[in-house]
Design a protein around this nucleic acid. Structure first.
Lengths: 185, 185
DNA sequence: GTCTATACGAGGATAGAC
DNA sequence: GTCTATCCTCGTATAGAC
């Protein structure tokens, strides 16, 4: 019954996310203006405000996928006591997530760490922190706490955009997992 | 001959740096406005522009101390071929710098990593990168490159403000150096 | 339901008076 | 050496056309 429009419509929200994801990842959240995004789509700034409450809201919407995957990982980690085997398994799963989630989303998360910290809504507030806190056994020393943290960061850094480590994503991840074996104990 | 002014003057530049250092470290570079700094000093925004070319310029001026210390470390590292002993010594010296430099400056550097990356003038551009590049031997594998990088980051993270690792600065640094021993090879 | 037009206050920055 | 006045862009908000 309803006409199919000649130009694709109703996907404006998705197209905003598309452009924002690219810009936020490439140039950073703070350096990306709403005007820039709007012009790229051929709409006005105000149109963005129909689809999203604020600029922050756009960023958050991009993170839901990564956030969900990491939430599940945190839940999995918390389900049973933290043994070395489980900690290592967590690191491996994390590596899978960093590559599994639509690549650009994870890159965007890492590229905008600081912007994320300044988001009041801590639903996505410091995904890393929640992760390593779940992994730290109760009686851990400072060194052990730092070790787990560095293992998590090694995996993330190995996949960080522009890290100029060279090699393929698979090679970098493999190297990160080797190092994590040394770190986690 | 020249009158001593009733209120101290001529030190406005230094006072700007004082306030900026505190604000940038506490609230972040992007979240600190020039109006905020100016009002705190009882001057106008425009006055700041007499002493500094841009807002970025203020940030850069704060970093000169840390930058100098790290430049020297890079130069030292490059002076001789990179052996394991030298790499470890470099990490130890780095730990000394992170505590030796007037504490707040180093904290400011770490608190504003991203802002620094966006500074065109790469005099201070990614202090860390210059450091680990100097430390990496020519034929290093991806894993070895990543290992050195993580060793540097471990030291920096151990001293990062708000990392909630607990313990004293000395304890955290000691832990970081232990871990670095495992990483560097 | 989707968007344009328009405006506001705050941001960084500049020219020029004093 | 410091300020006023001004400019452009930013994120945000609302009224109303379609």
């Amino acid at each position: 019954m309803t006409e199919t429009p000649t130009r694709r419509r109703g996907d404006t929200r998705a197209r905003i996310q598309e452009v924002a994801l690219e810009r936020f990842t490439e140039n950073g959240y703070d350096q990306t203006s709403l005007r820039e995004i709007a012009e790229d789509l051929g709409v006005t700034k105000a149109a963005l405000y129909y689809h999203f409450k604020t600029k922050d809201d756009i960023l958050e919407s991009l993170l839901s996928q990564a956030s969900t995957a990491l939430d599940e990982l945190v839940a999995w980690m918390r389900a049973e006591p933290s043994t070395r085997e489980r900690r290592l398994e967590m690191i491996h799963r994390l590596a899978g997530i960093t590559q599994g989630v639509p690549g650009d989303v994870m890159r965007c998360v890492q590229q905008n760490e600081v912007a994320l910290q300044n988001l009041g809504t801590s639903l996505v507030h410091d995904l890393k922190v929640r992760l390593w806190e779940a992994a730290i056994p109760d009686e851990a020393s400072i060194e052990d706490r730092l070790r787990i943290r560095m293992a998590v960061m090694t995996v993330l850094i190995a996949n960080k955009p522009g890290n100029d480590l060279g090699g393929t994503a698979a090679e970098r991840t493999a190297a990160a997992l080797e190092i994590a074996e040394d770190l986690v104990r």
